[in-house]
Design a protein around this nucleic acid. Structure first.
Lengths: 231, 231
DNA sequence: CTTTTATGGTACTGCCAAGTACCATTTCCG
DNA sequence: CGGAAATGGTACTTGGCAGTACCATAAAAG
């Protein structure tokens, strides 16, 4: 063992081929990246590993191998693994959570708004990306409650508030009759998730087809609207 | 380093206090456990660590420290870590999943059956135990899809089937009008989970009070029954 | 009481990953 | 062009954990 037994001695690798002053004719040599580019590359690699490839917690080695650069980059840029995961979650959140609320405002026709909302939710949540993200945040919520809070506020919490506002407006117009719009919003989003999310997360069922999605959200909207109709 | 440098030499610990023939007067000496008792103790320790203390993946050392016994016990009993996790999931499933379906049959009054079902679901799923179990299976589903399948079949899948049967019976009596009872069952369970499960899992909200639970499932049952009523 | 068997305890090995140090090289700036 | 600062690459250290080996002891068998 003991590898080498030279604690702080000279170079371990003596200048690998230094042919003069860097051959400018050798074209495809990947240039060194700038600060911001390196940050982007690292986050991209971490995202691919953790979300798209469903790796629970990617190792720094794996991230570096994919992104290039060195461990030093991670420490100067993010301050360590925890910092990287903070940045990673922020990145993912910022990327896919806004898609939840796109193109919805509280003046739309209620059925149209609910259908639109449901479609967004299903597409985001049931995708590989969405499931990976859920797994990520479920894990992190153990070690870093603040991270979970931030995530919730930016995504699900915001969506719930938006939906509650929509319901509130509809109630103001007399289209629905519910006691608590926030509670009703929770019921609706839950119904949209239904049992499908669990089945997807546990890999019980393959990705949903367009037709399946439309059938499901159509049924959910029908039940909900009929259920909250004034009588 | 190198600790000792005696690969296969004599004893590392020379007979710690052997006072004659074991003093029978020293009372609280924990006796050695039998096979089945050891198994139980190991599973119990693993359960406490993984579910109740929310440790994602307890180490064998941690399990041993809590349960007593030796690493050897785990290998002779479960064949290794994976075997232990198999047994752990089976143990937990067998313990809390039956509570999901207790005291429900398809001849009950529909509202009563739904309310009962919802109450069971909320109590099981929102408890610390339930959340810990969810986390466990979500993790394992990555490395062992078959484990996830087994779990689903014993718990959520069974519940869904039961609920679908109940709805089918009600439809036969003309109490409700839905196209697909299985889909409607998914909608109902989703509505019961609502947004509460996510809030609980991410520790956004403290455990629910009895009143909150009753209010929530009351609202969900009302919306659902009204939504599927024949018209 | 003696022999056999199985269990408890612990040391040890090997592996993997986080974090640190350092050199070589590249880029930036005067 | 020439030096300073930053970056890429790699080795190294440390720590945790799964898995294995082995001894001593407790229970069981004779």
């Amino acid at each position: 063992m003991q590898h080498d037994k030279r604690p702080n001695a000279g170079p371990r690798r003596q200048a690998p081929e230094r042919a003069g002053s860097t051959p400018a004719s050798a074209a495809p040599k990947p240039r060194r990246l700038k600060h911001s580019d390196r940050r982007t590359a690292l986050l991209q690699a971490a995202k691919e590993l953790s979300v798209e490839q469903n790796v629970t917690i990617p190792s720094l080695d794996a991230i570096i191998k994919r992104a290039g650069g060195s461990r030093r980059s991670i420490y100067t840029e993010f301050g360590g693994k925890e910092g990287l995961r903070d940045a990673l979650l922020a990145e993912i959140s910022g990327e896919i959570l806004p898609a939840l609320h796109e193109g919805i405002d509280r003046n739309m026709d209620l059925r149209a708004a609910l259908t639109h909302f449901a479609r967004r939710l299903v597409c985001v949540l049931m995708s590989e990306h969405g499931i990976g993200m859920s797994r990520l945040i479920m894990q992190d919520s153990l070690t870093s409650p603040s991270r979970a809070r931030t995530f919730y506020a930016k995504g699900p919490g915001k969506g719930m508030k938006l939906l509650a506002d929509i319901l509130e407006a509809a109630r103001g117009r007399g289209e629905i009759a519910v006691r608590d719009c926030a509670s009703a919003a929770g019921c609706f989003t839950g119904m949209v998730r239904g049992n499908l999310y669990l089945e997807r997360a546990l890999r019980i069922r393959p990705p949903l087809s367009e037709a399946e999605i439309e059938a499901h959200i159509g049924a959910a909207v029908d039940i909900f609207l009929e259920g909250v109709k004034p009588r």
